[in-house]
């Protein structure tokens, strides 16, 4: 039995190493003072962060990512939350299953396929090479995450709470604003975070619908790895990873505080 235990331990350790080592390996390179993205590092410096925030291409791409990410988050959260509210309570009907699947299918369709169609169609309606076009494209693939998250939390709400509010004379919109939405807030927040993260990481649709003026950080990293690889990529990756950890922490905190409120 001990041999089995040892095998489990070794395999588990090796697999965890395989999963995490690449992420750990790229982080220190953000602080290299060499122009090569490689070990051993001759010395430490923050020059690549300076490059990231001052060089026009990188600075601009960060600003673009923030603009497009915020637009996507707003649009996807509003549309997705409304859709989830509409789907709620009809889980038993056949139509529900069909509509829900239709709402989730953008997650599955290969991005390149969608990108070709969008490029063709957006060119016809003057949406190509515009911020609005990129925000729309990102929203299409971000909105399923909002629907899933909000729907999950809505289904866990006790309907008697809303019935109680209504029986005490609250109008439907008051019930929605004062009872349902506050209770659904954790789901809406995580949906919004997922939407923002999806937009931030999106490359393929951006390649097809964005012009040079809408180059996002992810898009800039993609062409930089392809054409002239430099440690600025590691600095950008560092920003991404630290951002991910911060967002995960914030999400956890907001979930806790939002989750506590109804009980208080």
């Amino acid at each position: 039995m001990n041999a089995l235990r040892l095998t489990k331990l070794l395999f588990g350790a090796a697999a965890v190493f395989f999963l995490l080592a690449p992420l750990a390996a790229i982080l220190p390179l953000a602080f290299t003072d060499s122009v090569f993205l490689n070990y051993p590092m001759p010395g430490y410096s923050t020059r690549w962060f300076a490059e990231l925030f001052t060089a026009e291409v990188w600075r601009r791409s960060i600003v673009n990512s923030l603009i497009i990410g915020s637009g996507t988050t707003l649009l996807a959260t509003v549309l997705g939350t409304l859709g989830a509210l509409g789907l709620r309570g009809r889980t038993s009907s056949y139509l529900f299953a069909v509509v829900r699947t239709a709402f989730l299918i953008p997650m599955v369709v290969p991005a390149v396929v969608l990108g070709v169609g969008m490029q063709l169609m957006f060119a016809r309606y003057n949406l190509a090479n515009s911020y609005v076009g990129v925000i729309i494209a990102h929203t299409v693939i971000a909105v399923p995450f909002v629907v899933v998250n909000v729907l999950a939390v809505l289904q866990s709400i006790d309907p008697r709470l809303e019935q109680a509010a209504a029986s005490l004379g609250a109008a439907p919109h008051t019930v929605l604003a004062r009872v349902t939405l506050p209770l659904a807030a954790p789901g809406i927040v995580s949906g919004a975070v997922f939407a923002f993260a999806t937009s931030l990481d999106e490359v393929v649709l951006t390649l097809f619908v964005a012009g040079p003026n809408q180059r996002t950080l992810a898009r800039q990293m993609f062409s930089s790895i392809r054409e002239n690889i430099s440690p600025a990529i590691a600095a950008a990756a560092f920003v991404f990873i630290v951002g991910t950890i911060l967002v995960a922490l914030a999400l956890n905190l907001s979930r806790r505080s939002l989750g506590r409120r109804p009980a208080a």
């Binding site: 549309l79 997705g80 409304l82 859709g83 509210l85 509409g86 789907l87 309570g89 009809r90 509509v99 239709a102 709402f103 299918i105 953008p106 369709v109 396929v113 969608l114 070709v116 169609g117 969008m118 063709l120 169609m121 957006f122 729309i136 494209a137 929203t139 299409v140 909105v143 629907v147 439907p172």
Partner: peptide, 28 residues
């Protein structure tokens, strides 16, 4: 009716910006 009204914006959005591009691609 309320359910339909709530679902409509997203359904419309996906019809125009998800289904239509895919159709355009197939038509091409």
């Amino acid at each position: 009716f309320v359910s339909l009204a709530l679902v409509a914006p997203l359904a419309l959005f996906l019809a125009v910006f998800f289904a239509a591009p895919l159709y355009t691609m197939m038509a091409a």
